[in-house]
């Protein structure tokens, strides 16, 4: 694949090229998705230096183990974000980072109604995501937000919201399902999701 073609290549094709040791393919993947991964890690950890380390780790992992990505199971972006989120949460829950989260939580209200919306910027699809998020029942949105952006376990979310653990599990699951259903109805279907 000529280098000029990489900009138009699908994510799946990029990963194939990465599997063939094409550094320019990794650079293109970084151009497309590193911003979202960096924003997520920074948000979770409240520390840009550590977020940069995680970003580096996630993309080096893609370089070293490209076969771990399966294009039929989701988009490259969601794969990279899941890697970023998992690694960030691991750090967040470690003893050394606990204080960092406590400091962050002390500065922020545990539940901010505009948190999810703030993450969605001015892309056309992102606007639709924003609309779908805003349409979520408040209790579902709070639970999703605290778990995903707060890095809390559902048990911790239950304590923060003063709700039963089972209820929190159900709210998160139903919130995610509702968002997906609404996105599909708005035309944000699989083709976009897997691009």
């Amino acid at each position: 694949m000529p280098m000029d073609d990489l900009r138009d290549a699908s994510d799946a094709a990029l990963v194939v090229a990465i599997g063939r040791w094409r550094e320019d393919a990794l650079a293109e993947a970084y151009r497309r998705h590193a911003g979202a991964a960096y924003a997520l890690a920074s948000r979770l950890l409240n520390d840009r230096t550590i977020a940069e380390e995680i970003l580096q780790e996630v993309f080096l992992r893609l370089w070293n183990r490209p076969e771990r990505f399966d294009a039929e199971r989701g988009s490259l972006r969601s794969y990279l974000l899941a890697q970023t989120h998992g690694r960030s949460v691991d750090l967040l829950r470690s003893d050394t980072s606990r204080r960092r989260r406590e400091e962050r939580d002390a500065r922020e209200s545990p539940v901010r109604s505009d948190d999810i919306e703030r993450e969605v910027i001015d892309l056309t699809v992102a606007e639709q995501v924003k609309e779908v998020v805003a349409a979520l029942p408040e209790d579902e949105r709070q639970a999703v937000e605290l778990a995903y952006f707060g890095g809390h376990t559902y048990r911790q979310v239950a304590v923060l919201l003063g709700a039963p653990e089972g209820t929190v599990k159900s709210r998160i699951r139903s919130g995610l399902r509702r968002m997906r259903q609404n996105l599909v109805e708005m035309g944000v279907g699989d083709p976009w999701l897997t691009t």
Binding site: G35, A36, A39, L81, V129, M179, R180
Partner: peptide
Amino acid sequence: HVEVAGLLSSGVVHAPMSVW
């Protein structure tokens, strides 16, 4: 679910080139 969660992180933030 993972795909939907990934959408929540959509944005136009640019990652530092120093990391690249």
